Simulated assay, not measured.
Amino acid sequence: MSSDTAPGPCGYSDADDAALYDLLNPWNPEADPGDRFYHELVMAAGSVLDVGCGTGAMLHQARADGHRGRMVGLDPDTAALERARRRRDVEWVQGTAAGAAACGSCFDLATMTGHAFQFLVGDAEVRASLSAVRGVLRDGGRFVFETRHPQARAWEGWARSGPGDVAAVVDASGRALRLWQDVDSVADGVVAFHGTVADPGGTVLREDHARLRFLGVAELDAFLAGAGFTVEARYGDWHRGPLTGDSTEIVTVARR
């Protein structure tokens, strides 16, 4: 899912940022339990719609591992989709979750990974997106996604407090970069923050501003029920453990 972007001086493009995302967030079902959770679901489904697919890494991996059914990735970000389209045996559609109808219908599985669901901030946007996703699923099809549990207050670990919170990386082209995040506001369950990419001297190359909504279980389930979904399963971690007072995730399996 996209965010508001304020590019800095020339020399750092949207394509560079999409490539950096892949570098920082490699899709690895063998090592990452969250990636493995989704990979198993995708490989078992005959047809899959990945909403907020980004650079398409999940569907790329599924096809490489032998998935033979229809797979479609949906995302509003042009640069991310350009990277996704490096693999042409998957369908790629530019658009938002609320426009999922453009991808066709009768999917067995729809997913939103990487906490993409939290980019749906307003009530109307959440309702329109859930309704659209339900509309493209076959009867009995499942929508699987995760959100950060608000009780864990993840944003408290995002605020930059010192030099140790600035990461140094080298991108695919060999360029040295510095990265950090700052929280701008927390109000009514919505966290506004921005991420910064700079050169080693501190010159800002890019700022990405975003807002994330942190829904509790009761509110989330009310939205799902209103869209016609039934919650089939609910987990508090990627190992299918129960939702508890210590859970950092709300992993939802909803059925049409």
Rank of each mutant, 00 (worst) to 15 (best):
F145C: 00
R178L: 14
V170C: 12
G114C: 10
D184H: 11
L120W: 07
A154T: 14
F107Y: 15
A210P: 00
V133R: 01
A198L: 06
A192R: 15
D182E: 13
D199H: 04
R206A: 06
R234A: 13
Y235V: 09
V204F: 12
L212M: 07
L109N: 03
G216D: 15
R134C: 09
R134Y: 06
V186D: 07
V190N: 05
F193T: 05
G135A: 10
T196D: 02
D208P: 02
Q151F: 02
V217S: 06
A128F: 00
T196V: 15
F229P: 14
F117G: 03
R134T: 08
S129Y: 08
D165V: 08
F214C: 04
L205C: 09
V191G: 10
D237P: 03
E146A: 07
D182K: 10
D123C: 00
A225M: 02
D108S: 14
V166A: 07
F107A: 08
Q151G: 11
V169M: 07
G174P: 01
A192E: 15
R178V: 14
W158P: 07
E125S: 02
F193W: 15
R206P: 07
A110Q: 04
L179G: 04
A124M: 03
D184R: 05
E219Q: 01
V133D: 06
G195R: 14
D188Y: 12
D165L: 04
A159I: 08
A233V: 05
A210S: 13
G195W: 15
A198V: 01
G174Y: 09
R127V: 15
D182T: 13
G201Q: 08
A172K: 01
F223K: 00
A210V: 03
A192I: 04
A168L: 03
V121D: 06
W155T: 13
F229D: 13
G202C: 04
F143P: 02
V121N: 03
A152P: 00
R160M: 09
V217Y: 10
A225E: 15
A225H: 12
D221R: 05
R148D: 05
A110L: 01
H149N: 14
F229V: 11
A154F: 06
T111C: 09
E125L: 00
V126E: 06
L177W: 11
R175G: 01
